[in-house]
């Protein structure tokens, strides 16, 4: 009897949850579907959900006409570049603070976090003018540096919380056995830290890929990533819904997939360990 009731309750919650889930996801689904329509069908009245002539035409047009490949390449370079360099700087830093904490470690951690709290617009002009005067405006180097510095506190914090979970006893055992600092890092720490490093990397690529303040203000053509490419659709000419959808689908697909894999790390990375 009780079981029947709870079963019925599960049916109801399942229906409600699926309905809400689909409603929230609908704009993305609609974008993906529209990307396979012709421009005329994209604005057809009444709109059709599935029964239209599926076409790949928009993807071809977007790639040919707007140099899509270059923007995509820039997005990849900026996201991966800033993440890799960020990790190279953050790993030693987080390692030293997690395993050799000093009196001021906590203060340093908090100070690093505070740099993340500074609104970008407060330093917009200095960065802009430094970029202009040094000739680095609209270059990969500049954007990689800015994105890396912007996310460095998050990377260090995430790695720190992961490193903290590694049992110190193991490190001490290795030290007893005469392992040098180098081999300690290479053979003991790294294998245990790799999952944490991988998820930190994933989250940081997502953040860098979607960053849309510096990428919009510090690029024009050469280093402009997909965020800027999509923004150029804000002043449209003629029919463009299907093409906008195709461009958008290509811009979000890789990150959407990566994002689904990094749900758990997202909580840890963006709350700085305050919610577990």
């Amino acid at each position: 009897m009780a079981r029947a009731v709870s079963n019925r309750r599960q049916i109801v919650t399942t229906i409600v949850a699926w309905t809400i889930g689909l409603l929230i996801f609908f704009p993305i689904l609609w974008t993906i579907l529209t990307s396979f329509k012709t421009e005329a069908e994209a604005i057809a009245d009444p709109p059709s959900l599935l029964f239209f002539n599926w076409t790949l035409e928009n993807y071809e047009v977007v790639q040919e006409r707007s140099n899509y490949g270059k923007f995509l390449w820039n997005s990849i370079i900026l996201a991966v570049g800033s993440t890799v360099i960020g990790l190279l700087i953050a790993i030693p830093s987080a390692w030293s603070m997690a395993f050799q904490p000093g009196k001021r470690t906590k203060d340093i951690m908090m100070w690093m976090l505070s740099t993340k709290m500074m609104p970008a617009v407060g330093v917009l002009f200095p960065i802009y003018i430094l970029a202009r005067n040094s000739g680095l405006f609209d270059t990969h180097i500049l954007l990689i540096a800015v994105l890396m510095l912007m996310n460095l506190p998050i990377i260090i914090w995430m790695l720190y919380t992961y490193f903290k979970e590694i049992p110190v006893d193991i490190l001490e055992a290795a030290r007893m056995d005469g392992a040098s600092l180098k081999s300690e890092i290479l053979y003991v720490l790294t294998p245990m830290a790799l999952p944490g490093i991988a998820s930190t990397m994933l989250l940081n690529i997502i953040l860098a890929w979607n960053e849309a303040f510096w990428t919009l203000n510090l690029t024009t053509i050469n280093a402009a990533p997909l965020t800027a490419f999509i923004a150029s659709y804000s002043s449209p000419e003629g029919l463009f819904y299907a093409k906008l959808s195709a461009a958008s689908t290509m811009a979000i697909a890789p990150i959407l997939i990566m994002g689904w894999f990094s749900q758990k790390q997202l909580v840890r990375g963006l709350t700085f360990g305050a919610v577990k």
């Binding site: 809400i20 996801f25 993305i28 997502i206 919009l216 811009a251 979000i252 994002g259 689904w260």
Partner: peptide, 11 residues
């Protein structure tokens, strides 16, 4: 439910 968070702001 989580998907929209990964969509870039301009999109």
């Amino acid at each position: 439910v989580i998907a929209p968070f990964f969509v870039m702001p301009t999109v």
